[in-house]
Structure formats: C-alpha cells, structure tokens
Amino acid sequence: MADKIPTDGVAYWKANVRLILISLVIWALVSFGFGILLRPALSGISVGGTDLGFWFAQQGSILVFLGLIFFYAWRMNKLDRQFGVDEE
C-alpha cells in the first residue's frame, strides 16, 4: 500500500463512526419506529384517509433514507478534506 495513514486517522475514524451511528438511529426510527412500532402512537395524525405511520411505512421512510445517504456523502466528503484524507 502506497498511502500513509495520517496521524489524525483515529479522530477521522471516530467522527465517521459517530456520523454512521446518528444516521442509523434515524434510519431505524423512521422505518422500525414510525413505520411499525410507533404507528399506534402516531395514529392521531391523519394523512389522506389514513395515519402518519402508514405514510412512513409506504413513502416517508424511503424519502428519509434518500436524505440520509446524501447527507452522509456530503458530510463525509467534507470530513475527508478537513482531515486531509481526501483523494487528490
């Protein structure tokens, strides 16, 4: 391997893992949470003939997944530059 591991590699990896954990909490919250387990708790909020949980299960979770992946890509590509580990 030609590349050197930068001295702040540990901090970079920690920041990455933290970002992944936050993203996965949101990932689980919208699908397993709002879409399934918390659906009864959200049943008071009606959306077009049904409730918010149904919307999350069939539409909302997918939209949040999309937002998460793009947010992660943007944030990580920025972190790469901050820590000087981006590809030249």
């Binding site: 993203s23 990932w27 879409g35 299960a57 069939q58 979770s61 992946i69």
Partner: peptide, 24 residues
Amino acid sequence: GYDNSTYLMGWTGGYVLLALLLAP
C-alpha cells in the same frame, strides 16, 4: 395492504447500510 410495506422499507433501507457501512 399495510403489512407488506416490509418489502418497500426492506428493499430500500438496505441501501442506507450499503452506503454507510460497505460501498466506500
């Protein structure tokens, strides 16, 4: 109906795992 929303969430949610944990 609603119970098969599993396919919608499952087959798209996997991409979050792929993007964050494996692909890069």
